[in-house]
Simulated scan of single mutants.
Amino acid sequence: MATSVKLDDDLKSRIQHLAEARHRSSHWIMREAIRDYVEREEKRESFKQDALRAWEDYQENGLHLTLEEADTWLAKLEVGQDVKIPKCHT
């Protein structure tokens, strides 16, 4: 499927210079840039949806960890201890 995108002269020139420096085509540079952007934005949207679900869950049941509890748990993981996540509470 072919798609066209209108680019201003400055951006076209920048893409061409980058393509030459990388020994790639302008088409390859643009395709990679779009792929990277879409993947990053999909991850961002997934993170946002996870956060919204977590907030909704918290509003329904009040279960949570305090910052200190989470910090302590993460510090133990960081030094290689095999510890389970603390139990959530209200």
Rank of each mutant, 00 (worst) to 15 (best):
R40W: 04
V79L: 02
Q59G: 08
K6C: 01
E42V: 07
L11F: 15
D50W: 03
L77E: 05
A19M: 01
V5D: 03
K48N: 09
Q81C: 06
S46Q: 08
L77D: 04
L63S: 09
T3N: 07
Y58R: 15
Q59S: 10
D8G: 08
V5C: 06
A75N: 09
I29E: 10
Q59N: 13
L52E: 15
R24Q: 15
D10F: 11
D71N: 11
K6A: 13
V79P: 02
A33M: 05
Q59A: 12
F47T: 12
D82F: 02
E68Q: 11
S13H: 10
S46D: 06
F47W: 07
R44I: 01
D8K: 03
C88R: 08
S13A: 14
H17R: 14
Q16R: 08
R22A: 14
R31Q: 12
K6V: 09
A21I: 00
A19V: 03
Y37W: 13
V5P: 03
A21K: 14
K12Y: 08
L7W: 02
L67V: 10
L74V: 12
M30A: 14
R40H: 13
W55S: 15
R44G: 09
L11P: 06
D9M: 02
I34F: 11
H27C: 03
K48S: 11
H64F: 04
C88D: 01
D50S: 15
E41N: 14
V83I: 06
D82M: 03
L52C: 05
S46V: 00
H17Q: 13
E68P: 06
G62F: 00
V79E: 08
M30W: 05
V83S: 10
V83G: 12
T3D: 02
E45M: 06
Y58N: 12
H89G: 03
E68N: 10
E68H: 10
R31E: 08
D71L: 01
E68D: 14
E60F: 06
E45I: 01
R22N: 15
R44D: 07
A21R: 13
H27F: 01
R14S: 10
E41R: 14
E78A: 13
G80A: 06
L74P: 05
E32H: 12
Y58I: 02
I34W: 02
Q49P: 01
P86C: 04
H89Y: 05
V38M: 04
L18M: 10
E56K: 15
K43E: 10
H17T: 09
A33I: 00
H17N: 14
W28I: 02
S46L: 05
Y58V: 06
K76P: 01
R40K: 15
A75I: 00
S26T: 11
E20W: 04
R53E: 13
L18P: 01
E41V: 05
P86S: 07
R53Y: 08
E20S: 15
D10C: 03
E39G: 05
K87G: 13
R44N: 13
E56R: 13
H89A: 07
N61K: 04
R31V: 11
K48A: 12
K12N: 13
F47L: 12
D10L: 06
R31W: 00
S46P: 00
A2S: 12
